[in-house]
Design a protein around this nucleic acid. Structure first.
Length: 280
DNA sequence: GTTTAACCCTGCACGC
DNA sequence: TGCGTGCAGGGTTAAA
């Protein structure tokens, strides 16, 4: 799950969960549930921090969600590969991979579900936010006002790395993963292994526009829901951006722009999809 | 500084 | 049918 999916969930949380008061917190007694809240909380600590608090706002930094509480507390959530939130009625069937359940006074509950257990959910406070290791090294979020062409141009020039891994580096910009880095590079017409410090100013501008436009398009389509992945919105409705993917997952299929078959290369277990004709 | 590989994890596709 | 194997990918970490 990457920035667009997390942003869609953020907007849904803002609409459906802000203003709710937490009446119960349940952490499953499984090794994976402990792993999800790992390092930061014991189940009792998480419960004590959240119980009776009201959720006052929901922010996002890169792929991290921050649910703010009325006493200065913050719930931090990251979905990893297969994690998601489900807003359900309490009597609704419980997915076996539900690790944490946050119940509200009005009746429904927010469930953190994650089959592969790469996700995280833990509590902290506004004052301690700067000390949270996961958040410390996050770079600028590309949908923030501060993400300008000039800024991006300078960042690219300061590094000498291949574009694809650089775009996915959360210390460079935060929010892109494997799917959207491929889509962005296609939209910009740039090859995945081009060097960041060897781009012309025109290419930098194309890349900048591609980052912003692909992310906004994906958010408009409510994110990408792939067959083998669990991403669906807060209430179970899948995204639609998978219909608009230009290269990701389309190896061997004709490029939508020039009909050349899309190619894929593997580098340390990550695949990069691209059109050899349109990207150079 | 950059790149590579291994690790965490489970569901699924595949071949025998 | 059933088993073993490989793969997917978020991030982190260690090593090259």
């Amino acid at each position: 799950m990457e920035l667009p999916e997390v942003e869609v969930v953020r907007r849904e949380l803002e609409k459906d969960v802000v203003g709710r008061r937490i009446s119960s917190v349940d952490v499953r007694r499984s090794a994976n549930a402990r792993r999800i809240i790992r390092r930061h909380d014991a189940p009792k600590e998480l419960r004590d921090r959240l119980l009776d608090r009201k959720i006052t706002g929901v922010d996002r930094i890169g792929k991290y969600l921050l649910l703010r509480l009325d006493d200065g507390g913050v719930i931090v959530a990251h979905f990893g590969m297969s994690g998601r939130f489900l807003l359900a009625q309490k009597k609704q069937h419980l997915d076996p991979h539900t690790h944490v359940t946050i119940g509200f006074k009005e009746g429904r509950e927010l469930r953190f579900i994650d089959p592969r257990s790469f996700g995280e959910l833990f509590s902290t406070t506004v004052d301690e936010l700067g000390k949270v290791r996961e958040l410390q090294h996050l770079a600028l979020d590309p949908l923030e006002q501060a993400f300008t062409w000039q800024q991006f141009s300078q960042l690219l020039a300061e590094r000498k790395a291949q574009l694809k891994p650089l775009l996915m580096d959360q210390e460079f910009i935060s929010g892109l993963g494997n799917i959207y880095s491929d889509e962005v590079l296609f939209a910009a017409g740039l090859a995945h292994d081009r060097r960041s410090d060897e781009l012309s100013s025109q290419e930098v501008r194309r890349l900048y526009r591609a980052v912003v436009e692909v992310l906004l398009d994906a958010i408009r389509a409510r994110g990408t829901t792939l067959d083998d992945e669990a991403y669906v919105g807060l209430t179970g409705k899948p995204g639609e951006f998978q219909e608009e993917l230009r290269v990701y997952g389309r190896a061997g299929e004709p490029c939508r722009r020039c009909r050349t078959p899309i190619e894929v290369v593997k580098r340390s277990r990550r695949s990069a999809y691209f059109c050899p004709q349109c990207q150079s």
